[in-house]
């Protein structure tokens, strides 16, 4: 994929997400051209603080998704607690209360599979630190649709299970440090 082809970035993270995202998201420059859609495993019965937290840290707009919200470029979107987040064909954001997948709602697989369906080869999928296998299937769907798969290096991850599962499912994925991931995103959308 060259930089002209990318239309969106999806990111999945679980245990250790806050630290990892704190390297990547604040590094997105003003005027970043791609939407960045993020699923973090958060507890279902609490308001998530992620949006406020990253609004304070980031140079780009950060929002928690509302149903049927249009996807705007250069914005970070967080899945709300206790809903799955999906990308519709018309490139709007849709929520669902369907059952948890791999004990997770929001589920990284659900976001990634629907995003792969909509964006095809114009999608960048990133799996970060986490202690379960969510995201591996979704990243595989992205690769199969011709998109680009990036994975945080398990050695440097707070929890290595999730990146390891993603790499096992997608041997062609590029594995790199958080700093390298941030630099890579800037190259595509900076």
């Amino acid at each position: 994929m060259n930089s002209r082809q990318a239309e969106a970035v999806v990111i999945g993270a679980s245990a250790g997400a806050l630290e990892a995202l704190s390297v990547i998201l604040p590094a997105l420059p003003v005027g970043f051209s791609l939407p960045v859609i993020v699923v973090v495993h958060v507890p279902p019965n609490k308001r998530s603080m992620l949006t406020e937290l990253f609004q304070a840290k980031c140079q780009v707009p950060v929002r928690e998704v509302e149903d049927k919200e249009p996807i705007s470029a250069g914005t970070v979107f967080f899945a709300p607690p206790d809903y799955h987040l999906l990308i519709e064909v018309d490139k709007s954001l849709a929520l669902s209360s369907d059952e948890a997948v791999l004990f997770s709602r929001p589920s990284i697989d659900v976001l990634f599979e629907s995003a792969a369906d909509t964006y095809g080869s114009a999608l960048i999928g990133i799996i970060l630190t986490g202690a379960n296998q969510d995201g591996a299937r979704g990243l595989k769907a992205i690769v199969e649709a011709g998109g680009l798969a990036l994975v945080q290096s398990p050695a440097g991850a707070f929890a290595s299970t999730m990146p390891e599962a993603a790499i096992a499912a997608c041997p062609s994925a590029q594995v790199m440090s958080l700093d390298a991931l941030a630099a890579c995103l800037k190259k595509f959308g900076g």
Binding site: K68, H84, L86, I87, E88, V89, A94, S96, D98, V110, E113, S114, D117, T118
Partner: peptide, 8 residues
């Protein structure tokens, strides 16, 4: 919403 329908 087609993304959910498709999944189901």
């Amino acid at each position: 919403a087609m993304a959910s329908i498709k999944r189901r």
